[in-house]
Deep mutational scan, measured.
Amino acid sequence: SADYSSLTVVQLKDLLTKRNLSVGGLKNELVQRLIKDDEESKGE
Protein backbone atom coordinates (compact mmCIF):
# COMPACT_ATOMS: atom_id res chain seq x y z
CA SER A 1 0.00 0.00 0.00
CA ALA A 2 1.01 3.62 -0.34
CA ASP A 3 3.20 5.09 2.39
CA TYR A 4 0.69 7.62 3.66
CA SER A 5 2.64 8.20 6.88
CA SER A 6 5.32 10.03 4.88
CA LEU A 7 2.78 12.60 3.65
CA THR A 8 1.86 15.81 5.44
CA VAL A 9 -1.52 16.24 7.12
CA VAL A 10 -2.47 18.73 4.40
CA GLN A 11 -1.72 16.13 1.71
CA LEU A 12 -3.63 13.44 3.61
CA LYS A 13 -6.67 15.70 3.96
CA ASP A 14 -6.53 16.47 0.24
CA LEU A 15 -6.62 12.75 -0.57
CA LEU A 16 -9.47 12.18 1.90
CA THR A 17 -11.46 15.05 0.40
CA LYS A 18 -11.05 13.60 -3.10
CA ARG A 19 -12.44 10.28 -1.81
CA ASN A 20 -15.30 12.00 0.05
CA LEU A 21 -13.93 10.72 3.37
CA SER A 22 -13.85 12.50 6.73
CA VAL A 23 -10.83 14.76 7.33
CA GLY A 24 -11.29 14.87 11.10
CA GLY A 25 -8.86 13.41 13.60
CA LEU A 26 -5.15 13.02 14.18
CA LYS A 27 -2.65 12.28 11.42
CA ASN A 28 -2.54 8.60 12.38
CA GLU A 29 -6.33 8.39 12.05
CA LEU A 30 -6.20 9.99 8.60
CA VAL A 31 -3.56 7.46 7.52
CA GLN A 32 -5.61 4.52 8.83
CA ARG A 33 -8.73 5.83 7.08
CA LEU A 34 -6.93 5.93 3.71
CA ILE A 35 -5.48 2.44 4.21
CA LYS A 36 -8.92 1.08 5.13
CA ASP A 37 -10.44 2.73 2.06
CA ASP A 38 -7.74 1.17 -0.14
CA GLU A 39 -8.47 -2.29 1.27
CA GLU A 40 -12.23 -1.88 0.82
CA SER A 41 -11.92 -0.66 -2.78
CA LYS A 42 -9.71 -3.65 -3.64
CA GLY A 43 -12.44 -6.00 -2.45
CA GLU A 44 -14.99 -4.82 -5.02
Rank of each mutant, 00 (worst) to 15 (best):
L15V: 05
G25Q: 02
A2L: 13
E40R: 14
E44Y: 14
S22G: 08
L30N: 00
A2Q: 12
V10Q: 15
E44R: 14
L7M: 14
E44L: 14
N28Q: 12
V23M: 06
L16W: 00
N28T: 10
L26I: 08
L26W: 07
Q32W: 08
L30A: 01
G25P: 02
L34R: 00
Q11E: 11
R19G: 01
K42V: 09
R33D: 01
K18A: 10
E29G: 03
R33N: 02
R33E: 02
L16I: 03
G25N: 02
E39S: 08
D38C: 05
G25C: 04
L26T: 15
L21W: 00
K42C: 10
S1E: 11
E39F: 10
L26P: 10
S41I: 10
Q32R: 09
S5Y: 15
L26H: 12
V23S: 09
S5M: 13
L16V: 03
D3M: 12
T8L: 05
G25D: 02
L16Y: 01
Y4L: 03
S41T: 12
G25S: 02
D3N: 10
L30R: 01
N28K: 10
L30D: 01
V31I: 14
D38S: 04
Q32F: 06
G24Y: 14
K42L: 11
T8H: 04
D38W: 04
D37H: 12
T17H: 12
D38A: 04
V10L: 14
L30M: 10
T17M: 14
E29Y: 03
S1P: 13
V23Q: 07
I35F: 06
K36H: 09
L34K: 01
V31T: 04
I35K: 08
N28S: 13
E39A: 10
E44I: 13
D3A: 09
V9W: 06
V23H: 06
V9G: 03
V9E: 08
T17N: 10
K42M: 11
K18Y: 07
K18S: 09
V10A: 15
V31H: 02
A2D: 09
S5D: 11
D3S: 09
V31Y: 03
G25I: 02
L21S: 01
G43M: 13
E29F: 04
G25V: 02
D14N: 12
L15W: 04
S6K: 14
S22Q: 08
N28C: 11
L30V: 02
A2V: 14
R33L: 04
G24L: 15
N28H: 15
V10C: 15
S41W: 10
S1A: 13
L21T: 01
L16G: 00
R33W: 03
V9P: 04
L21A: 02
T8C: 06
E39W: 11
E29V: 07
V31C: 05
E44F: 14
E29R: 05
L34H: 00
L7F: 07
K36Y: 07
Q11D: 06
E29C: 08
A2K: 13
S5T: 10
Q32I: 07
K27T: 05
T17I: 12
N28Y: 12
E40W: 09
S41A: 11
V23N: 07
K13S: 05
E40T: 11
D37G: 05
V31E: 05
E44N: 13
L15C: 05
Y4R: 01
E29D: 12
L7K: 05
R19D: 00
L15K: 04
K27L: 07
T8Y: 03
E44C: 15
N28D: 14
R19L: 03
E40D: 12
V10F: 09
K42S: 10
N28R: 09
T8F: 02
K42Q: 11
L7Q: 04
L12S: 00
Q32P: 01
L16R: 00
L34D: 01
K42R: 12
L21P: 01
E40K: 13
K27E: 04
T8D: 07
K42H: 11
L30E: 01
V10H: 12
E39C: 09
T17F: 11
K18W: 06
I35Y: 07
L7C: 08
T17L: 14
G24A: 15
D38L: 05
S22I: 06
D37E: 04
Y4C: 03
N20H: 10
Y4K: 00
L15A: 05
S1Q: 12
I35H: 06
I35D: 03
D37C: 07
D14E: 14
S22Y: 08
E44D: 12
R19V: 01
G25L: 02
L12D: 00
D3R: 14
N28M: 11
V23T: 15
N20P: 00
A2G: 10
L16P: 00
L16H: 00
R33A: 05
A2M: 14
K27M: 06
K27G: 03
D38M: 05
K36L: 10
Y4P: 01
K27P: 06
K13Q: 11
T17K: 15
L12H: 00
L26G: 14
D3G: 09
T8R: 05
E39H: 10
S6G: 09
L12F: 00
T8Q: 04
N20Y: 06
D37I: 03
K36I: 08
G25H: 02
L16D: 00
L30H: 01
A2I: 15
K36V: 07
Y4I: 02
D14P: 02
K18P: 00
G43L: 13
S5R: 10
L26V: 10
L16M: 03
D14W: 15
K36F: 07
D37W: 13
E44S: 13
L34C: 02
D37V: 04
K27C: 06
K36W: 09
G24T: 15
E29W: 04
K18L: 10
A2R: 14
Q32S: 08
L7D: 00
K42W: 09
L21G: 01
K36R: 12
L15R: 04
E44G: 13
V23W: 06
S5H: 13
G24C: 15
L34F: 01
D37T: 04
L16N: 01
T17V: 10
E44W: 14
S22H: 10
L34W: 01
K27H: 08
L16S: 01
R33Q: 03
K13L: 08
L30F: 03
R19N: 01
S1C: 13
K18D: 06
L30W: 06
